[in-house]
Design a protein around this nucleic acid. Structure first.
Lengths: 152, 152
DNA sequence: CCGATATCAATGCAATTGCATCTATATAGA
DNA sequence: TCTATATAGATGCAATTGCATTGATATCGG
């Protein structure tokens, strides 16, 4: 019976805050990267996943699962990263359709330089605003908003 | 001395959740609107502000303050809204540079139809996942992440 | 083995975004 | 008043996004 109910005021407020705050924070993190002459956040997300994945690399569709970017978006983002020499694409033996994407040394270096700025943004924008207990509470609440069957 | 510190694990986790969850939720709300043959969320944001503003309307720069959209973005969004007959632009007497933007009847109607879908998304994606107490806690925590000197 | 269907990834094209700049009016200061 | 600067908003152009589709290989059912 709660199927089509209008949202409660509390839900609307939480939604509005979530939308507004997340946009603000993204914008500020992006600005910090730009000011540092560094690539946008999206590049970091991909480089981060690839760095975690190690030498084995990842298939593009695995990046899609992990980052939530659209397929065409990953396809073109990888093309740009490759053009910049930050990743390399390798034919994969057992699947003629696909490829494996691996981060390069230059890619790791770029990721490190981005993290110096990005990590600082996170520390300032979030770490400095809430105690660790509050941060954990926030993480837990946000975790309950994830779509079912989402990793991490 | 905490100036340039790296972010704590708790901060990183909260940041990651915030980025991921907010993107997921936006995407799902956008999808719901699309499925209903309705305009994107950005239109709702503007129509909502204009509806709240009433007959007096708002100046574009006021919309920029309220919605956080970039100036060029508002400029073109308003052009599209006007082309669709959802808003109208009025010369304003005491400032020859500017204009006042007012929502039309059709604009109000569109906003209503969007809310039927958008509100339901909020109810499902947020209202159904957390108790009102938890929603209030979430709002409070997010509120502490706002950039200083931000409205609502 | 064969055709039907599913999956992986790329891409043409339209719409939107971002950046830098531009026009026009307003305001401040000499 | 006249010039310099600031503010409001629009816009040309490049980059990115979104959508739909395509090409290529894999897999499944018979």
């Amino acid at each position: 019976m709660t199927e089509k109910a209008d949202p409660s005021p509390a839900a609307i407020k939480a939604w509005a805050r979530l939308m507004r705050v997340s946009r603000q924070l993204v914008e500020r993190a992006e600005d910090a990267l730009k000011d540092g002459g560094l690539p946008p956040l999206a590049w970091y997300d991909v480089l981060h996943e690839l760095a975690e994945a190690g030498e084995g690399g990842l298939r593009p569709f695995q990046l899609i699962e992990r980052t939530l970017f659209a397929q065409y978006n990953i396809s073109r983002l990888l093309a740009r990263l490759e053009a910049d020499g930050l990743v390399e694409k390798l034919r994969v033996a057992d699947d003629g359709r696909g490829q494996t994407v691996r981060i390069t040394g230059k890619g790791r270096e770029t990721r490190r330089r981005m993290w110096a700025v990005y990590g600082r943004s996170i520390a300032e924008l979030v770490g400095a605003k809430l105690s660790n207990d509050d941060l954990d509470t926030l993480s837990a609440l946000l975790g309950r908003l994830r779509h079912p069957a989402m990793p991490e």
